[in-house]
């Protein structure tokens, strides 16, 4: 521990602090999954589903998207997704007309409820898709959100 303290003091920067914390086992190192760049670069729903390893997404009525009909500020649009499908493995939130569709994905391990929420930016009025992977298949639900003030740009 003393050694790490020395190096921390020597190099000073916050990065060294983090490195020391990681090697001391304070922060988990291996817990992070690889960021799926292809999916986040994809421009539309089909490409995102393909980048996540599926073929097509089937429409489902068992997915509920909670989002405002009209969002006053596109920089913070609260989106929540809940699914009644069995064996949900992951949930993804997509905004159709954003430069890159995919906003966030959530992996749902067993024991975690298929019910997540976050806030996203929306450049303009657009459809919001929730893609749920359940039992190896992909399902999608869509809701339109109108934006009165875009969230991209100053």
């Amino acid at each position: 521990m003393n050694l790490q303290r020395r190096t921390t003091l020597k190099t000073g920067g916050s990065l060294a602090l983090i490195a020391a914390a990681v090697s001391a086992g304070v922060l988990p190192t291996s817990a992070f999954a690889q960021w799926n760049k292809n999916a986040f670069d994809a421009k539309n729903l089909n490409d995102v589903v393909k980048a996540m390893g599926g073929a097509t997404a089937e429409k489902s009525n068992d997915i509920a998207i909670t989002a405002p009909d009209i969002a006053e500020n596109g920089a913070v649009v609260p989106i929540a997704v809940a699914s009644k499908l069995a064996n949900v493995e992951s949930i993804a939130i997509l905004v159709e007309k954003n430069p890159n569709s995919l906003a966030a994905t959530f992996d749902i391990p067993a024991g975690t409820e298929p019910n997540v929420g976050t806030r996203v930016k929306m450049g303009q009025s657009s459809n919001v898709h929730a893609v749920v992977k359940a039992g190896g298949k992909y399902y999608v639900a869509t809701k339109e959100v109108k934006v009165t003030l875009g969230g991209c740009g100053g």
């Binding site: 999954a33 890159n100 906003a103 966030a104 959530f106 929420g117 806030r119 996203v120």
Partner: peptide
């Protein structure tokens, strides 16, 4: 929970689960 965010998530992200 494991989550991956893109740049389209709002500033000061909120997450519920």
């Amino acid at each position: 929970l494991n989550a991956q965010f893109g740049p389209a998530v709002s500033q000061n992200p909120v997450m519920n689960f």
